[in-house]
């Protein structure tokens, strides 16, 4: 046993082992496992193995629980939603904001900024029975358009043009709005200009769209369901 060298001046620091012997002794130790205890096994390595296995198991559970579906766009580990699961639902104020910007691009030309339309030519949206009425009917009008003459709230409106189709796949259709866009713009007109009807969900538009998918001509007032 090498004692602490007497020459223990901190200005020099005596070594207690030579480099050669450090190498040689440890090279031997590297392959020397502890002697089994009288019971026939060494306790320390088993304990270590047990702890390590436990740790690895715990880490695996933690990782799987917080993997965030391995989707690069999931930022909260505990959310394991799979991509593509569930519809995209925007908060109401954003739906209305999007609808408003769509309205400003197209509808505003006939129905005007205040939604009152032009008497005798373009029907008003403010307080309109059709706008505030059944979702089925107003979705159909948006998808495929509406031919003159239009009767609304007891008045008749006639122009040289018709209400154009906004849905996709109509001959001569210019807009090709997705179901989502139709739901935005409808939600907007049903909640502005003094209207206070429920927002139209995208899924509802899709449902109606499927029912009338084969149609290639605009509606007339008489073809539409008359329910309010």
């Amino acid at each position: 046993m090498s004692a602490i060298p007497s020459n223990s001046d901190p200005r020099l620091e005596a070594a207690a082992a030579s480099d050669d012997s450090i190498q040689r002794v440890h090279a031997g130790l590297l392959h020397t496992k502890p002697e089994p205890e009288p019971g026939g096994y060494a306790l320390a390595p088993l304990l270590l193995l047990g702890l390590m296995s436990g740790l690895i198991l715990g880490c695996c559970i933690f990782f799987v629980q917080n993997r965030g579906a391995f989707d690069p766009l999931v930022y909260n580990g505990h959310l394991n939603t799979k991509p593509g699961e569930g519809p995209v639902v925007l908060p109401p104020e954003q739906i209305i904001a999007k609808g408003k910007s769509l309205y400003a691009q197209t509808c505003i030309q006939c129905h005007m900024a205040d939604g009152k339309g032009v008497p005798g030519k373009y029907p008003p949206l403010a307080g309109s029975d059709i706008v505030n009425g059944s979702e089925d009917r107003v979705i159909r009008i948006l998808l495929h358009g509406l031919k003159d003459p239009i009767t609304l709230n007891g008045a008749t409106f006639t122009t040289s043009e018709k209400m154009p189709p906004f849905g996709p796949g109509m001959p001569g259709g210019l807009y090709n709005y997705s179901d989502a866009k139709i739901s935005y713009v409808l939600s907007y007109v049903r909640s502005d200009f003094g209207n206070k009807s429920a927002l139209v969900e995208e899924s509802k538009v899709t449902e109606v769209h499927k029912q009338v998918a084969a149609r290639t001509t605009s509606w007339t007032m008489s073809e539409l369901p008359a329910s309010p």
Binding site: L73, Y75, L79, T81, V88, L90, Q94
Partner: peptide, 13 residues
Amino acid sequence: YDYPVERRLNTPP
């Protein structure tokens, strides 16, 4: 701007 895909994926059920 609120991205629809991220909103869907990151809103807890």
